Amino acid sequence: TEKEKEVKRLAKERGLSPDQVRELAQRAGFSPDQAKQIADEFA
């Protein structure tokens, strides 16, 4: 999704850790499970 792409782009730009990616995703409105899946891509 657009929102997911945006979260991943920000995460890459900022060099976020997987935990930070998960927090960012949840703040963007993703469920905890979705946020974990997104964060796992950065693990």
Rank of each mutant, 00 (worst) to 15 (best):
A43V: 12
D40A: 13
Q20F: 04
E4M: 15
A39S: 07
I38G: 01
R22W: 12
R22C: 07
K5P: 02
R9H: 05
R14D: 05
S31C: 05
A11W: 05
F42L: 10
L16C: 06
R27L: 13
P32I: 11
F42A: 04
E4Y: 15
S17E: 07
L24R: 01
T1Y: 14
E4G: 10
R27Q: 13
A25R: 02
E23K: 09
G29N: 02
L24F: 07
L16H: 03
A25I: 03
G29L: 01
S31I: 03
K12L: 09
L16M: 10
A11K: 02
V7K: 02
L16T: 00
R14G: 09
G29W: 01
P18A: 13
F30W: 04
L24K: 00
A35P: 02
A11L: 02
A11E: 01
A35E: 02
L24H: 03
F42M: 09
F30H: 00
Q37Y: 06
K12I: 08
P32D: 10
A28K: 09
A43G: 08
V7H: 02
K12Q: 09
A35W: 03
F30S: 00
A28E: 08
K3A: 13
R22P: 01
E4N: 05
V21F: 03
T1F: 14
P18G: 09
A43W: 12
A43I: 11
A35S: 06
K12Y: 12
E6S: 06
E6Y: 15
E41T: 08
L24P: 00
Q34G: 04
A43Y: 12
E23I: 14
T1L: 14
R9T: 04
V7D: 01
E13C: 14
R14Y: 15
T1W: 15
A35Y: 02
L10N: 04
A35F: 02
P32F: 12
F30P: 00
V7R: 02
E23D: 10
S31G: 08
A11F: 04
F42W: 13
V21N: 00
F42V: 11
D19T: 10
F42D: 02
E6G: 05
S31A: 07
F42N: 03
F30K: 00
Q26E: 14
K12H: 12
R14H: 13
F30V: 02
Q20S: 04
A43K: 09
A43N: 07
P32M: 08
A25C: 07
F42I: 12
E13I: 14
Q26M: 15
Q34C: 07
G29V: 00
E13Q: 12
A25M: 04
E4L: 15
P18D: 05
E4R: 15
L16K: 01
P18W: 15
K5I: 11
V7F: 12
V21W: 03
E23A: 12
F30L: 06
D33S: 14
A11M: 02
P18F: 14
E2A: 10
K3T: 09
P18T: 09
T1A: 13
K3Y: 07
P18L: 11
K36T: 10
S31L: 05
A43S: 10
T1G: 13
R27W: 10
E41M: 09
I38H: 02
R27C: 08
Q34L: 07
K8V: 11
Q20Y: 03
G29T: 01
E13H: 08
V21K: 00
D33V: 11
D33L: 12
E23N: 08
L24M: 09
Q34M: 10
E23W: 10
G15W: 05
P18R: 12
Q37W: 08
K3V: 10
Q37H: 11
I38D: 01
P18K: 11
L24T: 01
I38E: 02
V21D: 00
E2T: 10
A25N: 00
F42H: 04
Q26G: 05
G15Q: 09
Q26D: 03
K3P: 07
V21H: 00
A35C: 05
S17P: 04
A28I: 13
S31E: 05
F30R: 01
R9V: 04
E41S: 12
E41V: 05
A28V: 14
E4V: 15
L16E: 01
V21I: 10
V21M: 04
A43H: 07
L10W: 07
D40Q: 11
A28N: 08
L16I: 03
T1C: 14
D40I: 13
E41G: 06
K12E: 06
D33R: 08
L10S: 04
L24E: 04
E23L: 14
K36G: 07
R9G: 04
A43P: 03
E2Q: 11
R9L: 06
A25Q: 00
P32N: 08
K5V: 09
A25P: 00
Q37I: 13
L16S: 03
D19E: 14
K8Q: 05
L10T: 07
V7A: 02
G15R: 09
K5R: 13
L16W: 05
E41C: 05
L16R: 02
P32G: 06
K8D: 02
T1V: 13
Q34R: 15
E23Y: 07
A43D: 08
Q37F: 07
T1E: 13
E2K: 09
A25E: 00
A39N: 01
I38K: 00
S17W: 06
Q34D: 07
K36S: 11
E41Y: 05
V21Q: 00
Q20A: 09
Q34T: 06
A39E: 03
R9S: 05
V7P: 00
E13G: 05
A28F: 15
R9N: 06
G15L: 05
E4C: 11
A11V: 01
K8H: 07
D33K: 14
T1D: 13
R27N: 09
V7S: 01
K36R: 14
Q34A: 12
A11C: 04
E13W: 06
R14F: 14
A11H: 00
V7I: 15
D19I: 10
A25G: 02
Q26N: 04
G29F: 01
P32K: 10
D19P: 08
K5L: 12
A35K: 00
E6P: 01
D19G: 08
D19A: 13
Q26C: 13
K12R: 15
K8R: 13
Q37A: 14
S17A: 08
R22H: 06
K3R: 14
G15K: 09
P32T: 09
E23T: 08
I38W: 03
L10K: 06
A25D: 00
A28Q: 08
A35V: 04
L10A: 06
A39L: 03
A25F: 04
I38C: 03
P32V: 11
K3I: 11
F42R: 03
D19V: 09
K36A: 13
F42T: 04
E13A: 13
I38M: 06
R27G: 05
K5T: 11
F42P: 01
R27S: 10
E23M: 14
E41A: 12
R22S: 06
A39K: 02
A39H: 01
D33I: 12
I38N: 02
A35G: 02
D40F: 12
A39V: 04
K3Q: 10
S31Y: 03
R27T: 07
E4W: 15
D40Y: 13
D19M: 12
E6C: 15
E2C: 13
Q37D: 06
I38S: 01
Q34F: 06
L24Y: 06
V21E: 00
L24N: 01
L10C: 13
A11S: 05
R22M: 14
Q34P: 02
K8Y: 07
K36I: 10
K36P: 01
R27I: 09
E2F: 12
A39M: 06
A43L: 12
D40H: 13
S17R: 09
A39Y: 03
L10R: 06
L24S: 02
R27Y: 06
Q20G: 07
K3G: 08
P18E: 07
G29Q: 01
V7G: 01
V21L: 10
T1S: 14
K36N: 12
L16A: 04
A25T: 01
Q34K: 15
Q20T: 03
G29R: 02
A35R: 01
A39D: 01
V21C: 10
F30I: 04
A11D: 00
A25L: 11
E13D: 06
D19Y: 07
Q37R: 15
Q34S: 05
R22V: 14
R14I: 06
E23F: 07
K5D: 14
A35L: 02
E41N: 07
L16D: 03
A35Q: 03
R14S: 08
S17Y: 05
E41D: 14
R14C: 14
S17I: 04
Q20C: 12
G29M: 01
I38P: 01
E6I: 11
A39F: 03
R27H: 08
Q20R: 05
D40M: 13
E13F: 07
F30Y: 05
D40K: 11
R14V: 05
V21S: 01
P32C: 14
R14N: 11
A11Y: 04
A11Q: 01
Q37G: 06
S17K: 09
S31Q: 05
R22G: 04
G29D: 00
S31P: 09
S31T: 14
Q26P: 01
Q20M: 06
